[in-house]
C-alpha cells in the first residue's frame, strides 16, 4: 500500500507538471498579448515595452516557464497582472465558496441521481422507468445557463423563496446547488440504473430472495451496496465535468468562487490567475481520482491494491 501510494503520488505530480506545461505553452502561443490588456488603449509604445520588461514577458518561453515553475516549487503562484495581488491570495479568497458549492452540488446530484436510478431499475421497462430515463436524458443535455436562469426565475423572482443570486447564508446555496444537482443527476441515474439492473440479476440476489428475505431487505441490504460500488469511482472522475458546470452556475448566481475568477481572467489574458486556477482544478481532479481508487477496496474486498 505505501509503495502504491508513493507511485500514484509521483504519477500525479507528473500529470500536474504536464498540465502546467501545456497550459503555459498554450497561453504563450495564444494570439493575445497580456501586456496590451494591462497597458490599455492609450499607452505609448514605450509604456508597453516598459510593462513587458517589468513583468519579464520579453524573455523567451523557456525562461518564463522556468521562472514560473521555480516560483511554484517555492509555493509562489505569482502575481495577477491586472489586480497586482498574489494569485494565492485571490484563489484562497474564492476557494471556500467553490468547495461549499461543490459539496452541496455533489450531494444533490447523488441523492437525485441514485434515487432516480434505483427506482428506474426496480420498475424496469415500465412507464416510470421510461419517464425517469427521459428526465435524466434531458438533465444531461440541458444547457447549464438556461437551467440556472429558469430556476432563478421561478423560485427566486416569481415565488420569492430564495434570494436572487449572491452568497452568505444557506438560502443562497440552495438554488445553485440544486441546479448543479439536476444537471449532474442524469449521469448518476443512468449509471445507477444499469448497475442495479445487473446486480438484481445476480445469483446472490436470487439466493437472498430464496432465503425468504423481505423485498426491502433484499434491495437495501444486498442489492444497493453492490450496485453503488461503481458509482463511487465515478464521483472522482466526475469532478472534472463538475468544475466545468460550476463556472457557468457561479456566473449566473453571482457565486464568488474560482469559476468566476477563471472566467474573468481568461477574458483579460491574466496568465498567472489562469495558471493558478487551472493547477488548482487539476489538483482537485487528480486527488478525486486517487481517492476513488483508494476507497474502492474498502467497499469491495475483491479489489486489492498492489
Amino acid at each position: 500500500m505505501p509503495a502504491y501510494l508513493a507511485r500514484r503520488l509521483f504519477q500525479s505530480a507528473l500529470i500536474l507538471l504536464g498540465v502546467s506545461f501545456i497550459t503555459f505553452f498554450l497561453l504563450f502561443v495564444l494570439p493575445a498579448d497580456p501586456v496590451r490588456q494591462i497597458a490599455g488603449r492609450s499607452a505609448t509604445p514605450q509604456t508597453v515595452e516598459n510593462i513587458r520588461r517589468e513583468l519579464g514577458l520579453d524573455q523567451p518561453f523557456v525562461v518564463q516557464y522556468g521562472r514560473y515553475l521555480w516560483g511554484l516549487v517555492q509555493g509562489d503562484m505569482g502575481r495577477s497582472y491586472l489586480q497586482k495581488t498574489d494569485v494565492s491570495t485571490l484563489i484562497a479568497a474564492r476557494l471556500p465558496p467553490t468547495l461549499l458549492l461543490m459539496a452541496a452540488g455533489i450531494a444533490c446530484e447523488l441523492v437525485l441521481g441514485l434515487a432516480m436510478g434505483m427506482v428506474a431499475a426496480l420498475r424496469r421497462g415500465r412507464a416510470t422507468d421510461n419517464v425517469l430515463m427521459m428526465t435524466s436524458f434531458v438533465a444531461v443535455s440541458a444547457p447549464q445557463f438556461v437551467v440556472s436562469l429558469i430556476l432563478l426565475y421561478i423560485f427566486a423572482v416569481r415565488l420569492g423563496w430564495f434570494p436572487i443570486g449572491g452568497y452568505g447564508t444557506w438560502h443562497h446555496l440552495v438554488l445553485p446547488a440544486v441546479t448543479l444537482g439536476i444537471l449532474g443527476s442524469g449521469w448518476y441515474a443512468r449509471m445507477m440504473r444499469s448497475s442495479m439492473v445487473e446486480v438484481l440479476r445476480a445469483d446472490f440476489i436470487r439466493t437472498a430472495r430464496a432465503k425468504g428475505l423481505t423485498r426491502r431487505a433484499v434491495i437495501f441490504r444486498h442489492a444497493l451496496p453492490n450496485a453503488i460500488l461503481p458509482i463511487i469511482a465515478m464521483i472522482g472522475i466526475d469532478i472534472g465535468i463538475f468544475m466545468g458546470g460550476i463556472v457557468v452556475v457561479e456566473g449566473v448566481f453571482g457565486w464568488p468562487g474560482i469559476g468566476q475568477l477563471a472566467w474573468q481572467a481568461i477574458q483579460r489574458v491574466d496568465i498567472p490567475i489562469i495558471m493558478g486556477v487551472t493547477l488548482v482544478s487539476a489538483c482537485a481532479i487528480v486527488l478525486g481520482n486517487l481517492l476513488a481508487d483508494l476507497i474502492t477496496p474498502f467497499i469491495d474486498p475483491r479489489i486489492r491494491i498492489r
Binding site: 492609450s42 499607452a43 514605450q46 520588461r53 517589468e54
Partner: peptide
C-alpha cells in the same frame, strides 16, 4: 515604469517625461 501605469503616456508633455520612461 515600475508602477506599470497604463496612463503613463498621458503625461508625455511634462518636461523630463522621457528620462522617467527610459529609466
Amino acid at each position: 515604469p515600475a508602477t506599470q501605469s497604463p496612463g503613463a503616456g498621458f503625461f508625455a508633455s511634462i518636461k523630463g517625461f522621457d528620462a522617467m520612461s527610459d529609466g
